[in-house]
């Protein structure tokens, strides 16, 4: 039963993603994607897509004209970089100094994951040493009357949360 369900499930997922083969993006879709990758030169932190000032509007138009003239996205980006410098790109390029902005996060995450793994493994190892102590504690005869008192208190239902 579960196996059937699992296989149907996997099949459905595969079918879903197969059906998702993206159609070729239209010119406008490509342009809108580019709007989000270029920063408006006069409004810090906002992309062309976000900005409503005149220069951003002009730049958006320029992108559409150039795409229509069959320029590649990289060429258009390069055009803006030549005019305004690398800072016009919303994402730093993966080269030179700014390679670090891309490399560091995965490196730190991997290191963190490894640290997490080893710490948990270490904490588990300690468990084996401790197992013996708990076993000794459980056979402590002086605890017995209190255990009964606890059971009594539990049975009374007074300490229930309702």
């Amino acid at each position: 039963m579960r196996l059937i369900l699992l296989s149907v499930l996997t099949g459905l997922l595969a079918a879903a993603f197969a059906a998702c083969a993206k159609p070729e993006p239209t010119l406008e879709q490509r342009a809108q994607r580019m709007d989000k990758q270029i920063i408006c030169p006069v409004c810090p932190g906002e992309t062309l897509d976000q900005s409503s000032v005149q220069i951003a509007k002009d730049m958006r138009e320029l992108i559409r004209e150039r795409l229509a003239a069959e320029q590649s996205e990289d060429e258009i980006k390069q055009y803006f970089v030549d005019r305004y410098g690398t800072r016009i790109l919303a994402e730093p390029p993966a080269s030179g100094v700014s390679l670090a902005v891309w490399i560091i996060p995965p490196v730190v995450m991997l290191a963190g994951a490894a640290a997490l793994y080893f710490v948990v493994r270490e904490m588990r190892r300690r468990r084996q040493d401790q197992g013996i102590e708990t076993a000794q504690a459980s056979s402590d005869p002086t605890l017995k009357p209190y255990l009964e008192a606890v059971d009594e208190e539990l049975r009374s239902g007074r300490t229930g949360s309702g």
Binding site: I88, A90, P92, S98, V101
Partner: peptide, 24 residues
């Protein structure tokens, strides 16, 4: 945090500034 401080670091370290914005 890295995305916030990186532009500051590059500004100190080199001539060109970079932008780290939404797409990143």
């Amino acid at each position: 945090l890295w995305g916030v401080v990186f532009p500051l670091i590059t500004e100190f370290a080199s001539d060109g500034t970079v932008t780290v914005a939404t797409p990143y």
